[in-house]
Design a protein around this nucleic acid. Sequence first.
DNA 1: AAGTAACA
DNA 2: GGGT
Length: 216
Amino acid sequence: MTTQDLFDNDPLPPRQRLGPGSLLLRGFALPYQTRLLAALNAVIDAAPFRHMVTPGGYGMSVAMSNCGELGWVTDLRGYRYSPVNPASEHPWPAMPEVFFQLATSAAAEAGYADFMPDACLINRYEPGSKMGLHQDKDELDFTQPIVSVSLGLPAVFLFGGLRRNDKTERIPLTHGDVVVWGGADRLRYHGILPLKSGRHPLLDTARINLTFRKAG
DNA sequence: AAGTAACA
DNA sequence: GGGT
C-alpha cells in the first residue's frame, strides 16, 4: 500500500475548471467513442501516423497525423499549418462529422459556442512518448479555443502558465476526457509526461490525442 | 525546439 | 526534477 494508492480510488469530478477560460470534462467523449474510433481508423488509413522532425533535427517521440482543411506539421524548416500532407502531397482527409460534433459540443460546454475547427492534429503516444512544454501559437486567431480529446492509455497532462517557467499543474487524463482551453488560458504552456506502459481494451498499448483548432 | 544533452 |  503506497500513498498514491490512497488517491487512486478518489472519484474524479465530472467537470473541473482549470482556469478562467479552461474546463476539463471527464468522460465527455465516451458517448462518441465507437464512432470516433471507426472514423479515426479511416483517417489513419488515408494519412498514416509518422514521426515528424523538429527544426533542431530530432524526431518526435509522438507519431502524428491530421485531418481537416489544415494540418500541423514540423520539419527542419519549422512549424506551420499545411493544407497537404507532406508525406503524400495529398490534402489531409476531411474531418469526420463525429470529430466535429464532439469538438464543437465540448467547446460549447466551456463557453465557446461558435468554435468552428478547421484542423485536427492526431497524436499517438506509445510507452515513453512525451510532449515537452509548449504553446499552441501557430494558429491565426487566438480568440478560438483548443479542444483536446484523450483516448486509450492514461497520461499526465502538464498545464502551465503563460510563461515557460510558471509552475505546472499535473492533471491525470484518461480515456474519454476532454480539455478545453481558451480566452485568458489560450496561450498557456502545456505538455505530456512520458507515457507509462499499459493495456487499454480499445487502443491496446497506445494513447491517442485529438487536438482541435481553428488554425486558419 | 512541440527537440536533446549537460549540469546543478 | 528545474532551468538553461
